[in-house]
């Protein structure tokens, strides 16, 4: 959708596919570990880290680090801001489809 008037109205931060995947997965589960999120999104450690950091910096997700069985464990959680951003994004997507349907009916 790059360059179109419609895409200009979208939240660029979660428009990127991997970040949209992270936010969507965390909207479905209260909390997910780095390993589980990586498995669900079928991505690499580096890719997930980079995109998760951007979402964390924006306040869309919350990261907590701890230990499990003496091994480091990172858990992610969606914040209220992140949930609102996903809801807004979904509304935009649905509006695109609804307007396309209206235009189709008018033609």
């Amino acid at each position: 959708m790059a360059g179109s008037a419609v895409s200009d109205e979208l939240d660029r931060l979660i428009h990127e596919r991997m970040r949209l995947g992270i936010v969507s997965a965390l909207a479905a589960e209260d909390s997910m570990s780095f390993a589980d999120l990586k498995h669900v999104l079928r991505t690499s450690d580096g890719n997930l880290s980079v995109h998760a950091r951007k979402l964390e910096e924006a306040g869309y997700i919350k990261v907590s680090k701890g230990y499990e069985d003496r091994k480091p464990k990172t858990d992610y959680r969606l914040t209220a801001k992140g949930r609102r951003a996903l809801e807004g994004y979904l509304e935009k997507m649905e509006a695109i489809l609804s307007e396309a349907r209206d235009a189709l009916e008018r033609s």
């Binding site: 419609v6 109205e9 695109i96 489809l97 396309a100």
Partner: peptide, 9 residues
């Protein structure tokens, strides 16, 4: 909002 292009849809 403008009418979405086929690609957008």
């Amino acid at each position: 909002m403008t009418i979405p292009r086929h690609e957008d849809r």
